[in-house]
């Protein structure tokens, strides 16, 4: 009663305004709305017909086969630092992970025995497993299709390594020059993969990406194969976190 009276007094001050009855004991519904509140007017599609189910089944089998095949490339880990919206080309390119090894998940990525059963992940399609009809491809891709693109360079590297192994062994001024020359040639030419020589291939790949910013260290020097960690740290600091310190 008294509350009503006070209300009335308050209302008198503002003529014409109509206040809703204030209820101090009323409880606010503090529950958060769900992430996906129920759609107010959701229409469910009618059930799928046998035909549609069969279509899906066939699509699915084809898809699985393509994915297990040599031409499929697995998605890299999405780059979480970039924005989801991809308007410009720059943003588009940035959303993809760049280095598979660097994207390893430290919690689940540690290798276990059963991982050897997992299907291999293609970074680039394997072209050696399929027959290609050369005349339908542009001439500039032929060497890639045949898997011969990197042969010349690879042979060169092998020779160089052998020579290094036999000769002085220590990286003198001469050795450094030779590597430098080799790297220059490497940068010019393209390289390709051969399954048997994957390990060497890995070295070549690293060369390709690393030497552009580094001043040609000698990776082929057997003595420096296990390097002291200092250099690497420097490199890292230069690459990314340098500015933060």
């Amino acid at each position: 009663m008294s509350r009503g009276g006070r209300g009335k007094a308050g209302r008198a001050g503002l003529r014409g305004a109509d206040w809703p009855e204030y209820d101090p004991e009323g409880k606010v519904d503090g529950k958060p709305i769900g992430d996906y509140p129920p759609h107010p007017d959701l229409k469910r599609p009618c059930a799928f017909t046998d035909d549609e189910e069969r279509q899906f089944k066939y699509y699915k089998t084809l898809q699985t086969e393509v994915r297990r095949g040599p031409l499929y490339t697995q998605p890299t880990k999405p780059n979480l630092d970039t924005s989801i919206k991809t308007y410009s080309e720059d943003q588009f390119n940035k959303q993809y992970g760049t280095d598979r090894k660097a994207d390893m998940d430290p919690f689940e990525g540690v290798e276990t025995y059963s991982m050897r059963y997992q299907p291999p992940k293609n970074v680039i399609p394997k072209l050696s497993g399929r027959p290609f009809i050369m005349e339908f491809f542009p001439a500039e891709l032929w060497s890639t299709l045949e898997g011969k693109a990197g042969d010349k360079v690879r042979n060169g590297i092998n020779e160089a390594m052998q020579r290094k192994g036999t000769s002085s062994g220590w990286a003198g001024a001469n050795g450094k020059d030779r590597t430098q020359a080799l790297n220059d040639r490497l940068l010019e030419l393209d390289d390709d993969e051969d399954e048997e020589e994957k390990e060497k291939e890995g070295v070549v790949e690293d060369l390709d990406s690393d030497y552009s910013d580094d001043d040609g260290g000698d990776d082929y020097n057997a003595e420096q194969y296990f390097d002291n960690g200092d250099e690497e740290d420097d490199g890292d600091a230069d690459d990314g976190g340098g500015g933060d310190y």
């Binding site: 031409l71 490339t73 970074v123 680039i124 399609p125 072209l127 399929r130 290609f132 339908f136 491809f137 542009p138 001439a139 500039e140 891709l141 890639t144 299709l145 693109a149 393209d190 390289d191 390709d192 993969e193 390709d208 990406s209």
Partner: peptide, 29 residues
């Protein structure tokens, strides 16, 4: 994308007829 990966990708796309290519005399493809 590195040139090598790019060439491989292009080969896949051509194999599946997903891209056209044309090369003229003295012009790149």
């Amino acid at each position: 994308i590195t040139s090598r990966a790019l060439r491989h990708g292009l080969a896949v796309l051509i194999q599946q007829n997903l891209i056209y290519h044309i090369s003229g005399k003295g012009e790149p493809t």
